[in-house]
Amino acid sequence: MQRHQAGGNAAIPLRLRVLGGVLLAAHLLIVGWLTLRPLDVPWALAPNLTPLAGIRADLAYGPLEAAWRISSATALLAPLGVLLPLVSGRLAPSPLAAWSSLARTTAAGTLASLVIELLQTAVPGQVVDVDSVLLNTAGVALAHLVVVPAMRARLRRRAEKEGAGSRASGSQGSTPMIPRVRLDPWTEVLSAVPREY
Rank of each mutant, 00 (worst) to 15 (best):
V133H: 01
E196A: 11
G32Q: 00
P194L: 04
W99K: 05
R15A: 14
V22W: 05
T187M: 07
A103C: 03
L118T: 08
S132F: 13
W99A: 11
G139Y: 09
R15Q: 13
T110M: 11
R167I: 05
V130Q: 02
L119F: 13
L76K: 01
R56S: 03
G165E: 15
L118E: 09
G54V: 04
T35Q: 11
R158G: 05
R167S: 11
L29E: 09
T121N: 06
L83P: 00
A67K: 13
E117L: 10
Y197M: 09
A11I: 04
S166T: 07
L19D: 07
P149K: 03
A53P: 00
A78F: 02
V189G: 02
G139S: 09
L80D: 02
D58K: 06
V82Q: 11
V181C: 10
P63L: 15
P38D: 10
A67N: 04
Q5T: 14
R156S: 14
L134N: 02
L84Y: 00
D40W: 09
G7K: 06
P42A: 12
V22C: 13
P179S: 09
T137Q: 05
A57E: 15
I116Q: 05
R154L: 15
L34M: 14
Q5D: 01
A66I: 10
N48Y: 08
L118D: 04
V123Q: 13
I70H: 00
A67W: 11
P38T: 08
A53Q: 13
A143I: 12
L49K: 09
A67T: 13
A98R: 08
L111Y: 01
H144L: 03
V193G: 07
G81H: 04
R17Q: 12
Q172S: 07
A192K: 11
V22E: 11
A108S: 00
T137V: 02
P194S: 05
A97N: 06
W33Q: 08
D129N: 11
A122V: 12
V31E: 04
A164T: 01
I55L: 07
A107F: 06
G170N: 05
L24A: 03
L19V: 13
S169Y: 10
L84N: 03
S71R: 12
R37Y: 06
V87I: 15
L16K: 09
H4T: 10
L102G: 04
S174A: 12
A103S: 01
I178L: 14
L36I: 09
L36W: 01
E65H: 00
I30M: 06
K161T: 07
Q5I: 15
G170R: 00
G109E: 13
R3L: 14
V31T: 14
L91P: 02
R17F: 03
V82P: 00
